[in-house]
Each structure stands twice: as C-alpha cells, then as structure tokens.
Design a protein around this nucleic acid. Sequence first.
RNA 1: GCGAAGGUAGCUCAGUUGGCAGAGUCCCAGGUUGUGGUUCUGGUUGUCGCGGGUUCGAGCCCCGUCCUUCGCCCCA
Length: 415
Amino acid sequence: MIKAVKGTKDLLPEDLFRWHFAEEKFREVTRSYGYNELRTPIFENTGVFSRSIGEESDIVNKEMYTFKDKGDESITLRPEMTAALVRACVEHNLTREHSLLRLWYFGPFFRYERPQKGRQRQFHQFGVECLGSPLASADAEVIMLADRLIKSLGVTQYKLLLNTLGTDETRDAYRKALIEYLESVKDHLSEDSKRRMLTNPLRVLDSKEKNDIEAVAKAPIILDFLDDASKAHFENVKAILDKFGINYEVNPFIVRGLDYYNHTIFEFRSDSLGSQDSFGGGGRYDKLFEQLGGASTPAVGFAMGVERLLIMLESINQFELKSYDTDIYVITYDDSQYSYGLEVAELLRDKGCSVLNDVKQRKFKTQFKEADKYKSRYALIIGEDEMLNNQVTIKNMATGEQNKISLNELTNYKF
RNA sequence: GCGAAGGUAGCUCAGUUGGCAGAGUCCCAGGUUGUGGUUCUGGUUGUCGCGGGUUCGAGCCCCGUCCUUCGCCCCA
C-alpha cells in the first residue's frame, strides 16, 4: 500500500469540521482589525529564505526542502511566511501604495524535521503582519489580535511571554557579552549548549538542561543593554497590554529562532502540547525589507501553528462536530417515485435547503435510518399516492409529527 | 541527526511457554411487503507494517527496514 509521505497527514472530513471552525475565526478576528488576506506561491527562489532567516539557523541549514528545478534554479518549499510575504510586498510595491499595510495569511509550510506530536513536515500556519509602523502601537495591535483569536477559539490555558531584543546594535552588543559570559562557564554547559554558544548563543538561555539553567542564571540580561529609545518602546508595548488586561510575563530568556527580529519578541505557550509547548510567536523585524531589496519598512507580525492550536482545542473538547446537519431527506416508497423525489429535492435546493436523495435507492426503512444518520430535520415521504396528487408527506423527525401537503404549500413551508 | 516505546479487522484493542487470528464497535442484510432514533437475529471484514532468518510450525523468537508516538535538537 502506498502511504502518505512521512510527516504529512491527510485531513479527513471529520478533521475538517474542526479546521473550518478555526479558519472561520481567523477570518472573523482579522476582519475585526482590518487585515486583508495575502497568498503567495508555496515555493520560492531559495534566496528569499536563506537571506532572511539566517544562514546559521537550523531551518536554513538542514530543514528546508530545497531542490533544483529543470531550469537549474534553486527552489525551496516555504518553511515560513514572513520572508515570502515581504518579497511579495516589495515586488508589487504594496507598501508604497499603502503606507500602512495590514495582512494575514493561512496555508501549508514545509520543514524537514523528525515528526513528533505537534510537529510535521508539512504543517500549517496562520499569521498576520503589520507593515509600516515603527510604533509600539503596532506591536500591541498584533499581540492583541493574536490574544483575541486564541480566546475566541475557547482556549484559556496558555501563557504569553514577552521580551525585547532592542535595536540591532544592542542585540549584537548583548550577543557579544553573552558569548563572553558563556565562555567563562563553558565547563558547566551541556554539549548541545557548547555548540549552540557558537551558532545561536541566545538559544542557550532557553535550554531545558538542568546544568545549563543553573549556569545561565547569572548571565547578563538583555534588558541591561537597551538604549533609552528601546526601553521606551518596550515600556509602551507593555503599557498598552496592561491597559487592556492582556496577561503577559516578561521573560528575558525567550529567544526566537529567526535572525531578522529586533525590539519586541513574544511567544504563546501551553502545557497541553508536550515538548512542543510553543504554539505561536512573533516580533518586530524592521530590517527585513531592506535585506530583501525593498525600501526600509518597519514591521511586526506573528505566526501560529495551526496543528498545535487544534491539539489544544481537542484537549479541551472544544468543537466535537462529526458531520453537518441536513435539512431534508427525501424518502421514496419504491424506485418508481425516485424521479419525482428528485424534482422535489431540486425545488427545495433552489430555496437554499440542504436536501438528500437516496442515490443508492435503498429500501424504505433504510432511508429513514439514513435520514437519522445525516441528522435531517425533516423527512419528505413520497409514495404512489403523493406522486399522483403532486403532494409530499412532510415529517418532523424530532417530534414525529407529519402531514400531507401540496408542492405549492411545500415551497412556502418554513423549514 | 541522537535516545526510547509501539505497529493485529474501517476504528479501539485482546492474543498465554511458538500450535486453526479473536472481542467490542462500525458496516451490511433481515425482523412478514408506508415510518427512523432504542432493541433483537444473522453476516462480511485481515499482506498480523514490510523484507529476510530460526523452527516440523512464527502475530509471538532473531536481524534489517518503513511508519507512528515520546524525549533531545530545533521550531509554530
């Protein structure tokens, strides 16, 4: 038997009820903040990602699906959206036409990783990007949108972690000081962290190793390296969140995996997800437009792992629907009324009802059982009698009440 | 890339020291020819993940491999 590729999943009809529920909320919440959807191709020229995410990051180094196409171009299946979205905005000059641009997206992404709970090779992200404002107001809007979305899905058990990286200069100065410190406690670090010290030193702060956590406790803290403007920016973000009762926890140890962030960074975590406890995150990326050849454009955004979000919905039993209800099931006594039943069904579909005919033309009793299975609210019963008199018998499946009516009455019936 | 557990019917799983591959559920048919949700009766369903090996005989033991799950790494 041929199976789906490792780390990929089919979404079956029963899964999709939950997906549709979430996707509806994406539309609802983004609309309430005036965000418009943007879609980009699923693959890009490799440079879009290698130039933005960071050559040293694991994503670029070992997780991208990169291949040469028949024209010998290096192509990469998108591992995240922000770089692709910025590319599209630059290419179409969108930020020239709108000095402030609010966009959202939802779609599949690809990373070559070891599959695990909440981690697949093809996975889905939902996210928003607010382009054009350097102010804390934009950071706060994006965070509040994310928070509102999570709440609207019915999720309550989660934490919002907040940190700031300051400007590129403060981040680089901090990185230097941190490496210096880590060198001094090198003997107490795990093997992983000794390696990370060189590739992504900020990651060491986030280690789960007991020894690392102790060694890092006295490490220099980014907040001490911030210039006044960066501090003010961060304070403004917090002030807005405070005003609207958004709970957060400042955590100088949270770190994002992508190189392009500066100033505010944040992460949503939940303990119902096992080891992949982060289900969303984002931050400000003021330099990315320039890196990708566009005009300097301050920007902030976030992304959410949709599979992880849905795991959380499942764990709180949110949204258990297994199939959609239908309005009407047309039941015919035998095959000679089938064609008449079809006419009646089409008539009702014109009115906007969902109507089922038994295309297997099974026996009378079985059709009733089907009507139950599809949770039809009404059964239309058609025998020789009804057909000859241009009538139907309409039965309310919940009350059992039924009566014979003409087609005319049927088309005016309030279902 | 590293470490650990698992894979038996569509689904959830049982299967003893190696001896005819099972249960529940779902599905299908029927309960005397125009009424369902509950119920009763009967029935179908298998590459025991895949490939080798040991054995008279393998779902069970051995080796390899694929996939899933859990942890590390990394990230959403």
